[in-house]
């Protein structure tokens, strides 16, 4: 009995849960909460016969997800109003885009920050407009601020003073220090309009971004949820032109690995060449399943290795050394 494997199996095929006893349900639900997949699982379990106590959990998670969805859409509307006078394209990313676009990946999804993509040339104007509309800096530290502005693919995070919600303003989808360099102009040029004037990435770019976010950036925290996004996005958009599109953004390997992992864990329909895991893929799978039935992080070594990798991906060695030195000295103060 492994809670993370149960969670993955039931997301892919809710009927699998029919045979679960109470301890197995308990472990899977707890793992789902820890992986921020509670709302998604609740959505998958809708209409499935479950024990009464599981139904109570499911109803609570469904209400919570509906509220997160409502807040996310409202936050997007607030940003739209603040930025409308600028006349710049504002592209919603990740969870907010999925719910605004009515995509399967948005069903029950937990959504924290609002992520938007705007043209790099308009970044200063966007920042000024958001500050004027009540957003404030979260990181007052000069090093962090300078680091974001020089080396990150987004502005330092802003938080709204009265609504207490964070916005990440991106100008591309990977840090400039990362080895692949996605074509940000193409992302915006091919984005598609939403009914209210906001935009989202085109179908293939949504998958490319989700794969970049999962595999080319960060330490794989929340990996099961990000991979579920990819499963749903591929399910709706298919993979006909995906590899070519990924190659244009320099993200062919990341998208292929995301496709292989999605197939291995969630049974996603992918091209034949993506149906076998490589040896390295198995490490990613091991990392993604590193949560137990108490919601605890397990496999410390694997986690640490991916944490180190996330910095390696983001920074050349000398820069990494300087970054760690600054962070270490600050930790001593």
């Amino acid at each position: 009995m492994n809670a993370a494997r149960d969670l993955v199996a039931v997301l892919a095929d809710p009927a699998q849960a029919a045979a679960f006893d109470d301890p197995r349900w308990t472990g899977m639900l707890c793992a789902a909460v820890a992986e921020r997949l509670a709302g998604t699982l609740a959505e998958r379990l809708a209409g499935v016969a479950v024990p009464d106590t599981v139904a109570a959990w499911r109803d609570n998670a469904a209400v919570q997800a509906a509220q997160e969805r409502r807040s996310a859409l409202w936050e997007a509307e607030m940003a739209r109003r603040a930025l409308a006078p600028l006349g710049v394209p504002v592209v919603l990313l990740k969870g907010t885009a999925y719910v605004a676009g009515g995509l399967a990946a948005g069903r029950g999804r937990s959504i924290g920050d609002l992520d938007i993509l705007v043209p790099r040339a308009k970044l200063d104007a966007v920042e000024a407009a958001l500050l004027a509309a009540g957003w404030e800096w979260v990181k007052p530290d000069p090093y962090d601020d300078a680091y974001y502005r020089q080396w990150m693919h987004e502005l330092p995070p802003l938080i709204h003073a009265s609504r207490d919600r964070m916005i990440d303003v991106h100008h591309t989808i990977l840090p400039p220090t990362a080895r692949p360099t996605p074509d940000a102009d193409l992302l915006i040029a091919d984005s598609v309009p939403l009914p209210d004037g906001l935009r989202m990435l085109c179908a293939d770019d949504r998958i490319v971004h989700a794969a970049a976010h999962l595999l080319a950036d960060g330490d794989m925290a929340g990996g099961l949820r990000n991979l579920w996004d990819i499963h749903c996005l591929i399910g709706e958009a298919g993979t006909d032109k995906l590899a070519a599109r990924a190659a244009r953004h320099g993200l062919g390997p990341a998208v292929a690995r995301a496709g292989r992992l999605a197939h291995a864990l969630y049974g996603t329909d992918v091209p034949v060449t993506w149906r076998r895991l490589t040896v390295a893929d198995r490490l990613f799978r091991r990392r993604m399943l590193a949560v137990d039935g108490w919601g605890r992080d397990v496999r410390r070594g694997t986690r640490f290795a991916f944490y180190v990798r996330s910095h390696w991906l983001r920074m050349p060695p000398l820069m990494l050394a300087r970054h760690l030195w600054v962070k270490w000295r600050r930790g001593k103060q």
């Binding site: 109470d22 349900w25 308990t26 639900l29 707890c30 909460v33 024990p51 009464d52 106590t53 599981v54 109570a56 959990w57 609570n60 108490w294 919601g295 605890r296």
Partner: peptide, 9 residues
């Protein structure tokens, strides 16, 4: 009885 609503560690 059944499945708990919440886990505390």
């Amino acid at each position: 009885t059944g499945v708990p609503d919440y886990t505390v560690r």
